[in-house]
């Protein structure tokens, strides 16, 4: 029994008939082919599947696709605009904020969501804001540096909406 949903993902509208139990992350990955959103656990703890749902960071493994009906979603694939990386993406690249890259899309979106709300976060605020995203490679320090660097850039450029 399918349920019809319409969502906007990375500025593009999609309509699909989905099984109610289909998780948003599987909808994005398996139906839309947006595999940049990763799956790292089943208990909503690792944050690898983080996407922006109506501008808020959420764990897409703990949202049913049907719950997202009518929503505006941004995944990692949609963060760069007009061929230009988002400052948080740039920060991760410049500050070596990633190693294996698996947690990275979720981490970047968590960082972008933070800066959208709080353009000048302290280190403690950054660490709190990414506490829902686990990374096993970096020890987090370069991730924190990356978000700080993005914050500085955004401040210089006068901000940018996610």
């Amino acid at each position: 029994m399918g349920v019809r949903i319409s969502v906007k993902v990375n500025e593009r509208s999609h309509t699909a008939e989905v099984e109610p139990r289909l998780l948003l992350v599987h909808y994005l990955r398996d139906v839309l082919g947006l595999t940049g959103t990763h799956i790292g656990c089943e208990t909503s703890l690792c944050g690898a599947c983080t996407v922006l749902l109506d501008g808020k960071a959420v764990k897409s493994c703990t949202v049913l696709a049907v719950q997202a009906d009518g929503a505006d979603i941004t995944t990692i694939e949609g963060l760069a605009r007009d061929g230009k990386l988002h400052p948080v993406q740039e920060g991760f690249w410049e500050e070596h904020g990633l190693q294996c890259g698996y947690c990275t899309p979720g981490m970047i979106l968590a960082g972008a969501a933070l800066l959208a709300e709080n353009p000048g976060p302290s280190e403690t605020e950054i660490r709190r804001a990414i506490a829902g995203n686990l990374c096993r490679c970096t020890g987090y320090q370069h991730i924190v540096n990356a978000i700080q660097s993005a914050a500085r850039k955004l401040k210089k450029s006068g901000g940018r909406k996610v």
């Binding site: 990955r29 947006l34 595999t35 940049g36 959103t37 990763h38 799956i39 995944t75 990692i76 694939e77 963060l79 760069a80 990386l85 993406q89 991760f92 690249w93 990633l98 890259g101 698996y102 990275t104 899309p105 970047i108």
Partner: peptide
């Protein structure tokens, strides 16, 4: 990797 364009097995 920062644009979600890397390919892991899944």
């Amino acid at each position: 990797l920062i644009q979600g364009l890397g390919h892991y097995v899944d």
